[in-house]
Design a protein around this nucleic acid. Structure first.
Lengths: 368, 368
DNA sequence: CGCGTCGATGTTTACGTAAACACGTGGTCC
DNA sequence: GGACCACGTGTTTACGTAAACATCGACGCG
């Protein structure tokens, strides 16, 4: 294998080969190089190697050079397991989530990984394919056994409130997509504010009311968006149409769109995410309804593709990178201060991006 | 923190207050529970605890029960660092990739994580935000220091062929999106075959030739698709239009679409991915070209959204889950057989999904 | 009835690292 | 000039686990 060192070092004392492949003659047991090996070659103690390895002061230049040379020659790498054992820390953050398939999740995870890396932390991923109680518990159990110092949970935390889930002590938690701010440190997009902006935008354009395609019931984010939609309509004294249940997929948006196309007084729809908005656009197109002339559509997320829908989608921009950044920040603060009980909710603001899928209703004099 | 045990155990020696917060007065040093603690409480040796913990035979029922009870009481969890140190393995697979933002990558990673979990392996993610040589090297160096038994590289491996990258010995590698089958174990979608199917489909419909929007130059997958496109046209004796350079984004597809709209004899386009196809659709729509009546469009990937584009997109389906599965399989085979030099290329087949964005050219009698 | 054997459990040791402490040498201060 | 200190380096030890080996008692067989 090209990436590897050409060959591993074997101590010179052929007779007293204390590091042969465990004595097995044919054993090709790629022996890992330890500090002791480096120390022996450099003619120093292993503690000195440790000091050099960790950049500690108190090693004179010439010794340091010798050690570094030995390290290079042997291709020494610190053994992170031994390190973790010694320090009691793993420098790893676990991330539990349902799926990477949603834009939001994958971008949040990416941001988490990037920021964690910048702080010297790796991230370990535990996806849960099917959201059964068992799977969730299993994931948490596994995480408990894993080498992580903290866990970021990207899912509705209610699934965990069974009392049976236990993380090992000293493992800190930050939660995304949940309202558990009273018990955990929560970071999330300001779902309610984003939804409010979307609905108000449509009302401001002159629409009498706004229809709504929801996310799945289990999604906290979806619930918040739906609540905010309802609240804005009620505040404004507008009728509140029955929401259509979606599941984030374009397909569910399409189904909702076919239904909404039959509603003669539907002139504005707020979809709980961009994918469902895409489904709406296609359904309306198929039924001969022009967007935005006949119906206005607003989405949520601002996926990179949303600007290229037909027509380009007005939507609520979520700053996933910022969510990821704050998750890491929160988790590191807990690790560093050893304080794991700082509940609270940290909301990342949203931004309404107005494109071409919204307009005043037909026959309206315009905004007002 | 709800998830944690109420308090940790401290060996009884002190007085007999075996459940104080910790021996240290002010120190709230969440003491981790070790086998020794469990052993003491259960009145057995730590070796017996180890045997119970690992399900080894040779522990009589009553003893086992006692140990299990002690484990439960103390909330014992095995220390994975110590385990890794003892075994020399971490049960972790590293994944290096550029970005999770692309559908393909995130779905591949998800599949990797799922299958790895099923085999008792966790995955550690190292994303590289900007593809500079330095960043790539840095990621590999970090990976070398990390606790991983193997690495899956999701990127063009040429970036690594500098000779300076070194992974520690015993770390196995599987590569995705590369042609390094002569040096590494490579798993990938059969890019060429997929592209061939796409182009042939368009020719079969009666189009004289097929235009092409490429992926970024640096992408091996993109190169393969472009090569295959060219090869099919040449084999069929058709003219080969100059390909338009894209970067996977819908925006670049849109730009290409605006350019292609000016080409009077462009009746069929093969976009190297679905997002760029989305951009094409919008550009054509904007310029009054009907798809598929005036221009046929084929994409690549079959993202979940592609079926809801306007019109629903004919595209090449990639089985990312299978790619992920085979990556894990390959890596585990290497780990288990201790054989890390089994180069070869494992291609996952594709499937052409015909929807509504392709049709015979205007004025054509139809396929043939 | 004594010896061999087997099964259950305890004891020792090693894994690789790094903190804590020990040691020795050279210089400084009074 | 002797006590002390600083600095560079070596030695001991602990981290938690589990393999390897040791021990001890009970049981079976000749």
């Amino acid at each position: 294998m090209d990436l590897n060192e050409p060959e591993q070092w074997v101590p010179p004392a052929a007779g007293s080969a204390r590091r042969s492949g465990s004595g097995v003659p044919g054993g090709r047991r790629r022996q890992r190089v330890s500090m002791a090996d480096v120390a022996k070659l450099a003619g120093v103690s292993s503690q000195t190697v440790s000091r050099v390895s960790n950049g500690h002061p108190g090693v004179v230049g010439s010794t340091r050079e010798q050690v570094l040379a030995a390290m290079r020659e042997l291709g020494y790498r610190p053994n992170s397991a031994a390190r973790a054992l010694r320090y009691g820390r793993f420098n790893t953050i676990g991330v539990i989530l349902f799926s990477l398939s949603s834009t939001g999740n994958s971008r949040t995870v990416e941001a988490i990984a990037t920021h964690a890396a910048a702080e010297g932390y790796a991230i370990t991923l535990i996806p849960i394919d099917v959201a059964t109680q068992d799977n969730v518990l299993g994931a948490f159990t596994r995480m408990g056994e894993l080498a992580v110092d903290a866990v970021i949970v990207i899912m509705e935390i209610h699934l965990l409130d069974t009392g049976t889930v236990q993380l090992p002590p000293g493992v800190h938690v930050v939660v995304v997509d949940s309202d558990a701010g009273d018990r955990y440190s929560v970071v999330d997009t300001d779902q309610a504010d984003g939804a409010r902006k979307a609905v108000r935008h449509l009302l401001d354009l002159g629409h009498r009311t706004v229809w709504h395609v929801t996310g799945p019931e289990t999604s906290y984010a979806g619930q918040r968006r739906t609540q905010a939609w309802r609240a804005v309509l009620e505040e404004a004294g507008r009728p509140v149409p029955a929401p259509l249940r979606g599941d984030w997929s374009a397909e569910s948006g399409y189904a909702a769109g076919l239904a909404l196309a039959e509603e003669p007084d539907c002139t504005a729809v707020f979809a709980a995410n961009d994918q469902m908005a895409l489904g709406l656009l296609r359904a309306f197109h198929e039924r001969g309804l022009a967007v935005p002339a006949d119906v206005s559509v607003v989405g949520f997320d601002d996926t990179p593709d949303a600007a290229f829908f037909i027509p380009p989608l007005t939507t609520v921009h979520q700053d996933f990178a910022e969510v990821g950044r704050r998750c890491v920040q929160g988790v590191l603060r807990q690790i560093r201060t050893r304080d794991d009980s700082r509940p609270g909710t940290d909301l990342v603001p949203t931004r309404l991006v107005i494109r071409d899928s919204t307009a005043p209703p037909l026959g309206s004099p315009g905004p007002g």
